[in-house]
Simulated scan of single mutants.
Amino acid sequence: MAGFGEPGAPAVDAAGLTVGVVAARWHGELTDHMAERARAAAEACGARAVVARVAGSVELPVVAQAMARRFDVVVALGVVVRGATAHFDYVCQSVTEGLTRVALDEGKPVAHGVLTVDTIEQARDRAGLPGSAEDKGWAATVAALEAALAIRGLDAASAHRVGFA
């Protein structure tokens, strides 16, 4: 965790929006809590949350894509802990590239709420548990909703454009 620079994640007015939350079952104690925090953040923002579970983080992008086709924003949640092999690097790269591709291909905000950590203790400190330094489920949800509102603002601004097209 960087420990600095986080902008904070106060609730935004996202009434009427739907958040697709997809969470891995690996490290279920943490991902269950993160998914609950994502749902709570959506509710606090006036949005509706639909939660789906997948086996692991590698499966997140394909379900995120299906959700992006149906919902306003997507939040992908998982925990990947570094081990003794290169598997960590492959999983992290695959998930990051997949989620980025979904966001760009579908034109929808897709929050990357996958904790990529060296130790399970680092993950606990980011999972929004009591005493955690960060709450990634909440923060990722608010960030995705804020991005959706920014896109809507651009749509509204372009509808009022004056001049030559």
Rank of each mutant, 00 (worst) to 15 (best):
V62F: 13
E106G: 05
A127H: 11
L115E: 00
P7N: 12
G16C: 12
V102H: 07
V73G: 02
G128H: 09
E36D: 15
G153H: 02
D72N: 14
E146R: 15
G8W: 09
E59Y: 07
R69Y: 10
E106M: 10
G113T: 01
T116F: 10
L149T: 10
A2I: 14
D105Q: 15
T31N: 04
A165S: 12
H27S: 05
G8K: 09
A86P: 03
V51P: 02
G46L: 06
R152H: 13
L60R: 01
I151M: 14
A147P: 00
S132R: 12
E43H: 13
R70M: 11
A35P: 00
L104K: 08
G137E: 02
L17R: 03
L77S: 01
L60Q: 02
E121D: 15
V19Q: 01
A157C: 04
R69G: 15
G153M: 01
W26D: 05
R82A: 12
F71N: 07
R126E: 09
R48F: 12
E106H: 06
Q93C: 10
A157V: 03
V162S: 14
P7Q: 11
R101L: 08
E36Y: 03
G128S: 10
L154G: 13
D13N: 12
E43V: 14
L99G: 07
V91T: 04
G46E: 05
A76P: 05
A38P: 05
A47I: 10
A76F: 07
G46W: 03
S132D: 12
A86H: 08
R37C: 10
K136A: 11
A15P: 01
A66R: 14
H27R: 08
G56S: 12
A68I: 01
A41D: 06
K108I: 10
G16L: 11
V50W: 03
A143V: 05
M1S: 15
H160M: 12
H87L: 06
L77M: 03
R82M: 06
F88P: 04
I120V: 13
A42K: 07
Y90W: 04
R152A: 13
S132P: 11
M34D: 06
D72C: 10
L149S: 11
T100K: 12
L145E: 02
L77G: 01
E121C: 06
R152W: 06
A68R: 00
E121R: 10
D135V: 04
S57C: 04
A44I: 09
H87F: 06
K108W: 06
E121F: 10
V162P: 02
T119L: 07
V162C: 05
Q93P: 02
